Simulated assay, not measured.
Amino acid sequence: MSAETFAVNQPPNAEVRIRQFLDLSAEYLRLVPPRTESPLYFTAENEDALASLREGLLAHVLMRKFITKGESVYLPRVFEALLEDYKDSIPADLARQLRVYMYELSAALKKITEHGVQYGINGADAVSDRVMLDRYLNGRLLHSDHDKWQQADSSAFRVMLGSWLSTRAEFRDHLQNSRHNVSFAVGSYALFPLPPES
């Protein structure tokens, strides 16, 4: 699956974009446990797992904001805005380090969005775990698309959830590092006041 592009109203400047990023990323990090916690397996009998599934789906909705081109907080765009709008305030060495990080992050996001485990659904062509999650969201939670509803109800979807926990944890690491890098640049060079929890 190629990275999707989605157009939304964009923030008026880098400071607002960064504030939005810090707020939404904090929400994601509160929802997704660190990688060290063991995954739950989803069965109808396991109420804890079903609650975790609901949190996981909400986390996926938030994750899409960071990995979808055109979103206000698409991670590479947050770094581009920081580097463009504050180029006179950020030292050249730090700017180079942030650019290197941004390119590495872009490659990692591409891996997350375009690769992953492939699943066959009801005899159809195999699709990635991200596509399966999107179908679940659009068929069962956000919309009532009949075909996506049927596909999301398949046993392949339930099998896929375990592998998605690993992707979610990997993305959490990238997001936490991104928050650290952005907060460091903003805070160290007093670009603007950071919210208390950043």
Rank of each mutant, 00 (worst) to 15 (best):
A3F: 14
T5D: 02
F6M: 11
A7C: 02
V8K: 09
N9L: 03
A14D: 00
E15P: 00
R17T: 12
I18H: 01
Q20V: 10
L24R: 13
L24M: 12
A26W: 03
Y28L: 11
V32M: 04
E37K: 05
F42G: 09
T43S: 11
E47F: 06
A49Y: 02
L50T: 06
L50P: 02
L50N: 15
L53G: 08
L57H: 03
L62R: 01
M63C: 01
I67F: 02
K69C: 10
G70S: 08
S72C: 12
F79I: 09
F79Y: 04
L82N: 00
L83K: 11
L83H: 03
D85R: 11
D88A: 15
S89C: 13
S89Q: 14
A95H: 10
R96E: 13
R96A: 15
R96L: 10
Q97M: 04
Q97F: 03
Q97T: 09
L98P: 06
R99K: 14
R99S: 15
M102I: 06
M102E: 15
M102S: 13
E104W: 08
L105G: 03
L105Y: 11
A107M: 10
A107T: 11
A107C: 10
L109T: 01
L109N: 04
K111E: 15
T113D: 08
H115Q: 15
G116F: 04
V117Y: 06
Q118Y: 08
Q118N: 12
Q118M: 13
Y119A: 09
Y119G: 07
G120F: 02
N122D: 13
A124R: 13
D125E: 14
A126I: 09
A126C: 07
A126R: 12
V127Y: 01
V127M: 10
M132A: 10
M132H: 05
M132G: 10
Y136R: 06
N138T: 07
L141C: 11
L141F: 04
D145M: 06
Q150C: 13
A152M: 04
D153Q: 13
A156T: 06
A156Y: 05
F157C: 06
V159N: 09
M160C: 12
W164Q: 15
L165R: 14
L165E: 15
T167M: 14
A169T: 07
E170I: 07
R172S: 02
D173I: 13
H174C: 07
L175T: 12
Q176D: 14
Q176V: 04
S178T: 07
H180L: 14
N181V: 07
S183V: 10
F184M: 13
F184V: 02
A185P: 00
A185M: 02
V186K: 05
V186C: 05
S188N: 03
F192Y: 00
F192D: 02
F192W: 03
L194A: 01
